[in-house]
Each structure stands twice: as C-alpha cells, then as structure tokens.
Amino acid sequence: MGADLSALLKESWTLVEEDQERVAGYFYAHIFTAHPHLRDMFPVQMQLQRERLLSAIVSTVHGFNDLERTDTYLRQLGRDHKKFSVEPEHYALVKSALLRALRYYARGGWNLQFEQAWSDVYDLIAAKMIAGANEDDSPPYWYAEVVAHERRGRDVAVFTCRPLRPMLFEPGQYCSLETHYQPRMWRTYSMANAPRPDNTIDFHVRALDSGWVSGPLVWRLRPGDLIKMAAPMGSMTLDRQSKRDIVCVAGGTGLAPIKAIIDELSRHHNRSRFVHLFRGVRTRDDLYDRAHLDELVAAYPWLVLTRAVSDDPTFAEAEHGNVSDVLRRTGPWQNHDFYVCGSPAMVSATLRAISDMNVPRMRVRYDTFA
C-alpha cells in the first residue's frame, strides 16, 4: 500500500475515530434498511460483528506490513466467506454502506481525496477476496459429526469431529465453526492434529465469559451433534524445507495448532529437528492436557517442554513469569524457526522478544486469537 494512500487513510480516520462505534452501527443499519434480504446472512447478536468490522477498519488504516501474508489472508478470507453465501455483487453494497458511514461521521472534513483512497483500498481488498472465492472449488462449509467430547479443565473442552466428506488442511491452520445452538454465529478454532486416515479432527475450546459459540462448544456439545466447518485458513504451517530446530510458543488454547505441528513432525519420524515447546499459562489450573503433553515428551526424544506460569508463584513444576520473559531467559534461539499462537498480548510480547534476538522475520510464523 503506497505511503500517500496510507497517509490519507490515517488522516481521514482521525475525523471519525471518536465515533467509530457509531460508524459501525450506521454501517449495518444502512445495509439492513436498504437491503433487508441481507439480514439473514448475519447473526441475531450483532455486537461482536460490529467489533470485527471496527477491527478490520483499524487494520486497514494502519496498513499492510507484509504484502505476501496479507494477500494469502485476503484470498483465504474470500473463500471463507462462501459460508455466508456471499456473491461478488454484495461487495459493492458493502462498499457503498462503508463510504456512506465514514462520510456521514466525518461531516465537513470529508473530501474527494479521502473518498478515493477508501474506494481504492476497498476495491483492492474485494478483488483479492473475490479471486480467492473463485479459485476454490470446495463447498461453502462441511458438516461434521462430533464423535467425542471431553472436559479437560474447568472451562476447556477437547472434542473430536469427523467431516461427512474429507476436508483438506495443513497442520497449524484454523477454521470457523458453527453449531445449531447459535445459528449464523461462527468462531475460529485451530485444528489440533495433523490430517488422519479416518479424517477426524480435534479442537481445543475455552469457554469465554460472553462466548456465544465457545460456551455451547464446551458445555452443551455432545457426541452425535452436527456442526458446520468452514474452509481452513492461516499460514502458521510447518516449513518442511527447513532443517533448523524449532521453538514453539503457546498461550492457553493456542496449544492446539502447536500440537498439530508436533503431530505432523512425529508422523514423518522426525529425528533431525529438535523442538522446544514453551507453554505459557496464568496458573497451574490452566495446564489442561498436561498428562498428554508429558506422554509426548516421553515418546519423542526430540521434544522438550518448558511450562511457564505468570500468576502462580508457589507452583514448583514450572518457570515463573510471562512465557515471553521465560523465552528471553533461555536459549540462544537465533538459529531456530518459531511458531507462536496465543492471545494478542502474549503474541505481541513474544514477537518483541524474538525480534530482540535478531531472528529473521521470515522464520517466524504466528497466529493471534482473541
């Protein structure tokens, strides 16, 4: 994205930033009023949908720092939107509503340069999303039967499902899930295993306080239930060409894609690449799946596990502090590949630590979940 275009986006955003929640509300109100047939494409509860819109706008305003990663993401996002029955003509309706909302709340400060900048960026994003959808011949989503469901912590469940038709994915990727408990509400979760001959897939889910989807997945989901799975996304996949040793950093249920990568390495009888897994949690009670990880460490001599707890000073079986700080205290890691998954704060802190070690950006792959 050009510097001039980026500057125009940032300057125009200052005109509406204080009213950004109203911008989102106006945007959806206009779409649903002008095109009421589109309302059924959205969930009944719109709060998170508005937050996602704002997040997308802010990300656009601050620019795309990694063009290759952004291009891949937008194409995957377009393919993912097939689950909503999005058609190419819908993008023009969304563009019109977005520009109208920005224009309204910018009031007298809006000008033709701002209008053109937002129009150009939106057209670029839409073109990549449409191309991604057109390039892919997979179904809009897969139905999958839940075959096992187990609570592995006070608010964490691990469940296994089997798509009714095979779904191809790479270890480290994620996909959106929907249940009949909350129709039209989709949330992203990482696959926790490498592809299996029987096509089953594991997911790790923590129930959030206001989790419209995570709550039912933890507390209500049962074997025999059918869920919907959208197309896989994400670029935190194993670099099979690399011979370097690996550092994995997982926070909370960010453990899931890391387990998938370890599973992939084990299936190829890895003997040449050591893997050091740093697992960060707040307290010992958050160490779900602890026994299984210990079994993996015992089974694979190339796997080393370091647990880090930030708010449990009496727990003697782990390092103390944030996982990013524990990473800094160990090493050296300059010659390793990195895979990082966790909360935004945890990922940001870990990326700073990795940057301070002068690890080349191309050797760092990560995903952030909220």
Rank of each mutant, 00 (worst) to 15 (best):
E264S: 09
M46W: 01
I125M: 11
R103E: 05
M233F: 03
Y104P: 00
Y189Q: 00
R273T: 14
I258N: 07
R184K: 02
E317T: 01
A117G: 03
G78Y: 08
C161E: 04
G172Y: 09
F27H: 00
Y28D: 05
L112E: 14
T33P: 04
D80H: 01
I201K: 03
A370L: 10
I262E: 06
G321Y: 15
D40S: 06
Q116C: 12
S310E: 13
R206P: 02
Q76N: 09
H37I: 09
Q45T: 03
F32Y: 09
E11A: 06
A316T: 12
I227M: 05
M1D: 09
D289Q: 05
R328S: 14
Y366V: 05
L54C: 15
Y339M: 01
E87I: 11
Y28T: 04
E21L: 11
R187S: 08
H269T: 13
E178Y: 03
A192D: 15
S210E: 13
S348M: 15
R39I: 03
F369A: 10
L327G: 04
D356E: 13
W118S: 10
A106W: 02
D286L: 00
D289G: 02
C175W: 02
M357K: 06
Y104H: 15
R307C: 04
Q116P: 00
V275Q: 15
D120K: 07
A97P: 00
R290S: 05
L287Y: 01
R152P: 03
A192L: 14
G211C: 06
C175E: 07
H35I: 04
R271G: 04
F369Y: 13
S214T: 15
N358G: 04
I262W: 12
L67V: 11
S310L: 06
Y288Q: 02
T160M: 15
P301S: 13
R273H: 08
S272C: 12
L99V: 00
V158H: 07
